[in-house]
Amino acid sequence: MHPAVEIEDLTVAYGDKPVLWDVDLRVPRGVLMGIIGPNGAGKTTLLKATLGLVKPAAGSVRILGRPYEQQRRLVAYVPQRSSVDWDFPTTVLDVVLMGRYGHLGWIRRPGRAERAVALAALEQVQMADFAQRQIGQLSGGQQQRVFLARALAQNAEVYFMDEPFQGVDAVTERAIIQILRDLRAAGKTVVVVHHDLQTVPEYFDQVALINVRRIAAGPVREVFTETNLRATYGGRLAILGRNGAADAVTTPTPAPGD
């Protein structure tokens, strides 16, 4: 069986400055994978290059064994919340409906079936009461739930999320992680760009450490070690060493077999 995502020799450069250098990454099916690395390490670029939003200088990306262009309907995407203008004149339901546009093509209007899917997705993120609300009136956590609902409406196999926990309240963070676990339980694969090292062992099965190059990737127990983290973050790790990363290393639990 093909892995959910297979990235080979991916190199991306903005101008003459490489942002990602020769990155290989395999994401097995049915896992929650965190992509970790310092600011400017190329995490978002890795996601965007995987989705064809950034043109790589070299390398290839396969989703479930095929190029992305052939698998679009099996892929859902949650961009960074700050990437859009939340003062745009539209409602929560309209935004979630946009998750269906990939299935509709570029002329057809969403109908009753699409509305049902979108409302169910809103229900899942506990935002059903907000369906007719203007998006500018939402809090940061609610905006993130709406974006998540839009991805759920895509009804995909592989989910890519860019910093879904950025700037959300604790309640929303717990709600989101629960939804991600539900997705995994349903056999879906979720790849999340994440910045909080403390929560990595709790949230993810697999982790990829990125800093322009791929430093390490694999099951959290094996890969999330102090050595690897130091290699990824350099000297900036000092504060986190004691309880975050070290805990993960010193708890000797067998890695789940493939």
Binding site: K48, L51, G52, Y77, P79, S83, V84, M98, Y101, R150
Partner: peptide, 9 residues
């Protein structure tokens, strides 16, 4: 509203 998302679709 969201050109990147549109492109991903």
């Amino acid at each position: 509203f969201d050109p990147d998302f549109a492109r991903s679709l």
